[in-house]
Design a protein around this nucleic acid. Structure first.
Length: 496
RNA sequence: CGGGGCGUAGCUCAGCUUGGCAGAGCGCGUGCUUUGGGAGCACGAAGUCGCAGGUUCGAAUCCUGUCGCCCCGACCA
């Protein structure tokens, strides 16, 4: 058990300047918090950010968590070209139409005008479809299970760091299968991977389900998504998994000879998560002091702040270094902040702002008592358990336990928020009222009709987020919005 | 793409109405003292006033255009 801390209680409230209170203006809070934490910086390129080392480290950790899961489900990584010839892009009509307004075009090579324009990929179904057509001849070549880590470009009119940028980093998985049954399983499998990453890694609860026809990926048969709820009551689509049917196989000639010697089109899927996921977890967890990062992703899980004092400086420094070395050996991502130019108070605020899950303070009193003082970022000052005296003898196990506690603490707080802002509307009036108030995710039995969807959007600005089949109903159910027979149970909310 | 706001030192901003030497705080550099919740003193460096035209003897300031950022809509896997 952690012994009672002997250190004094917190002093005056320390506020990070230049970050407005989160509740007052989420948008301003968000951009200021990301920027002050040095996740990104603005660039001379409109709508395009530079990902700074701290932000890139965060992305790398998310990348690793996802990549491990892709590998564990049988996928391999590959890479495909950035440029897509216009004539290839045009072959899948729905896909072209969907992406046309967002495609950036290369028209010149050096000083010479190209005979055919090149699209900068907004997504890679097209070029990958062309390549799969070359690689797949027999049922023995299937399934193809490939993932790609890359950047894509979409010409956006309004951009926000991570949530919507013109160029962004993501992964796109592309698979080809011999049967629709198999590709359907793949779509569900990867949606579940995304749900798990959001919940267990990002500590960000999500709802899963299928997109309506209007919200579907351009060219897909079915699109499924994970949707998180942000503190302003707007939903954030954090990952999608698409059943592309045979649409792309037909447009790009992905054909194979099956066991029955018949030539058939393959069934393909695609699924993607971008750095938008980072934006989601930042908005979800952050507070007035800045970021709060889940330990599973934090570039530094632990920051050690030595508190030197005249006469005891050397012993404090020596212990701080020992603690760092032991934690490194234990596999903890740790940083010893031994900068001389800042006082401890400054460092406390800075690392809180940057979201480090656990701070270890080491001062003369700690050294005397063979302990360190650990402070959790997921707790408010003065909360029970926020500050712990941790005996050096059990440093590694104690730190790991506290990191687990922070991971779960953040998840629980986010889950409680979602629980309080997820509604089941019983009447049309209640449904529209909740949406107009931007109260959160509102679920109703729904007719799944585009006309009804359009009316809801016109009146409330909310759209369907995703939906699941009706089940366990005694008899026929009516759509809460329009009264026609309900076909699904759908979440509605305004969205990012 | 429409409406609104903002671009002056690394950051936050004052100066603009009424044209006349480029400013403050914080940060940054050097030195000393400090260090359990954003330390103190001293000295110092730092700016094509977003960009391009125009008016003027003279423009950060007035006019026109343009680019970018932020907010709200529209649009959008």
């Amino acid at each position: 058990m952690a012994e009672e801390s002997s250190v004094q209680e917190y002093g005056e409230e320390a506020l990070v300047k230049e970050i407005p209170p989160k509740a007052a203006d989420l948008s301003k809070w968000y951009t200021a918090a990301c920027w002050k934490a040095e996740l990104f910086d603005y660039t001379p390129v409109r709508g395009s950010i530079a990902l700074r080392p701290y932000g890139y480290a965060l992305w790398e950790n998310l990348q690793r968590q996802m990549d491990d899961r892709f590998k564990a489900t049988g996928h391999v990584n590959a890479y495909f070209p950035l440029f897509i010839p216009e004539s290839l892009l045009m072959r899948e009509a729905a896909h072209v139409e969907g992406f046309a307004p967002e495609v950036a075009w290369v028209t010149h090579g050096g000083n010479e005008k190209l005979t055919e324009r090149l699209a900068v990929r907004p997504t890679s179904e097209v070029i990958i479809g062309v390549m799969y057509a070359r690689w797949v001849q027999s049922y023995r070549d299937l399934p193809v299970l490939i993932n790609c880590w890359n950047n894509v470009v979409r010409w956006e009119k309004a951009t926000r760091p991570f949530l919507r940028t013109m160029e962004f980093l993501w992964q796109e998985g592309h698979t080809a299968h011999a049967s629709h049954e198999e590709s359907t399983e793949e779509v569900a499998r990867m949606l579940e991977v995304y749900r798990e990453v959001a919940e267990d890694v990002c500590a960000m609860p999500v709802v899963t389900g299928e997109k309506s026809a209007g919200e579907r990926f351009a060219g897909a048969l079915h699109t499924f998504s994970i949707e998180a709820l942000m503190p302003d009551g707007k939903a954030l689509q954090a990952g999608t998994s698409h059943d592309l049917g045979q649409n792309f196989a037909k447009a790009y000639d992905i054909e194979f000879v099956d066991k029955d010697q018949q030539v058939k089109h393959a069934w393909t899927t695609s699924w993607g998560v971008s750095w938008r996921m980072l934006g989601g977890l930042i908005m979800t967890h952050g507070d007035d002091r800045g970021l709060r990062l889940p330990p599973a992703l934090a570039p530094y899980q632990v920051v050690i702040v030595p508190i030197p004092k005249k006469g005891s400086g050397e012993s404090v420094t020596a212990v701080a270094r020992q603690v760092r070395d032991r934690l490194v050996k234990a596999g903890v991502r740790v940083r010893l902040d031994d900068r001389d130019e800042h006082k401890p108070g400054w460092k406390f605020s800075e690392w809180e702002m940057r979201g480090v899950p656990l701070r270890i303070e080491i001062g003369a009193r700690d050294v005397e008592q063979n302990q360190v003082t650990a402070v959790r970022r997921d707790c408010e000052k003065g909360d029970a358990g926020a500050k712990t005296g941790l005996a050096l003898a059990r440093l590694e196990s104690g730190v790991c336990e506290l990191l687990d506690a922070v991971q779960h603490g953040l998840h629980e707080q986010a889950r409680a928020y979602l629980g309080q802002h997820r509604f089941e509307a019983q009447t049309r009036e209640e449904f529209f009222d909740l949406l107009r108030r931007q109260a959160g995710l509102v679920r109703i039995p729904w007719c799944d009709d585009a006309v009804c969807e359009a009316e809801i959007k016109a009146q409330t600005s909310a759209t369907t987020r995703n939906q699941v089949p009706l089940e366990g109903e005694a008899g026929p159910v009516s759509c809460v919005a329009c009264g026609n027979p309900a076909k699904t149970r759908a979440y509605f909310a305004r969205s990012y």
